[in-house]
């Protein structure tokens, strides 16, 4: 094979990869709350490209400064994107074919968020909008 043909093939492959990347994660399906919404907290293209930066920025703010805004919070990602199984229970978001795992597997990028973070909202989240305070919490406050 000549070198020109070779480089053309590589260029083609790279192009295909980009198209494929655009496709990957494009489908938000299932019964998650996200599936009902027009777009995420930022434009879809931006989310696809920079969600990890948002998360990392937010993580430092939350851990070190106690800033707990919901917009870029991992808890909120999970609460909104988690799907429910037939029995009504949440499916782990890093399970096979689920929102996070599906895309990360497709692009072969490992993600270690869920070694520590819960991969599904707690059942109470369905009633209380997840991290919002419940009335019981308010009552028990000092």
């Amino acid at each position: 094979m000549s070198s020109t043909a070779c480089s053309r093939l590589i260029a083609c492959l790279i192009l295909t990869l980009f198209i494929w990347l655009e496709q990957a994660g494009a489908q938000i399906s299932g019964n998650s709350r996200a599936a009902e919404l027009e777009q995420c907290v930022e434009p879809t293209a931006l989310m696809r490209k920079s969600h990890m930066d948002f998360l990392k920025h937010q993580r430092d703010l939350t851990v070190h400064q106690g800033i707990r805004t919901r917009k870029h919070s991992l808890l909120e990602c999970i609460a909104c994107h988690a799907e429910k199984a037939a029995n009504g229970e949440f499916i782990a978001i890093n399970a096979q074919g689920q929102f996070c795992q599906g895309c990360h597997a497709a692009v072969a990028v490992s993600m270690d968020c869920f070694q520590c973070h819960a991969a599904r909202p707690e059942p109470s989240a369905m009633l209380t909008n997840h991290i919002s305070i419940t009335t019981a919490d308010l009552d028990s406050a000092r």
Partner: peptide, 9 residues
């Protein structure tokens, strides 16, 4: 099965 508000690993 970590709690969502208490990540640990």
């Amino acid at each position: 099965n970590q709690r969502p508000h208490a990540p640990r690993g």
